[in-house]
């Protein structure tokens, strides 16, 4: 089988990007989250996967403790309009405004503008190539104000 290891782009930062991949809520569909976690890891990022059934509190705590550059929220239960605002708000309450927040899963197109208004940097729906997600994170994390 041909192996196509996802590659960092030429402008890779020397410091490893730290990403929390999180599964908020109760749904157990972790195929996507695990594929993304592994693809990001293979692309040279430091990946922390929270495991399943995380509360917003637990996710925010992980982001803080791990000093993450980005957090990817994987939701396939339809609860994204409840869970994502909560997580974004709690991050803000903690004074965290430089973490790139992305969402992946079965997100109806109509909900995407609202999520972006809340401060979600990107929404990836089923079929998004992993390289697109990798490229996005590299550029979004690189574009942030220096910490």
């Amino acid at each position: 089988m041909p192996r196509t290891v996802p590659k960092m782009s030429a402008s890779s930062p020397t410091q490893k990007i730290r990403v929390v991949v999180a599964k908020p809520g109760l749904d157990g569909h972790d195929r996507g989250a695990k594929i993304i976690a592994r693809a990001l890891r293979d692309a040279g990022m430091e990946v922390i996967y929270t495991g399943l059934h995380q509360t917003p509190e637990q996710i925010v705590e992980t982001v803080v403790q791990e000093d993450a550059d980005a957090v990817g929220l994987s939701i396939l239960s339809g609860a994204h309009m409840t869970l994502v605002p909560k997580i974004v708000e709690m991050l803000r309450e903690q004074g965290i405004d430089d973490v790139v927040v992305t969402v992946g899963g079965t997100i109806p197109a109509d909900d995407i503008p609202q999520l972006k208004e809340l401060g979600v940097a990107a929404v990836f729906t089923p079929g998004a190539p992993t390289q697109e997600i990798i490229d996005f994170l590299i550029s979004a994390v690189g574009d942030r104000a220096p910490r």
Binding site: G25, A79, T82, L83
Partner: peptide, 8 residues
């Protein structure tokens, strides 16, 4: 823990 998931 059920918030946002009831009947979804």
């Amino acid at each position: 823990l059920s918030l946002g998931e009831v009947g979804r």
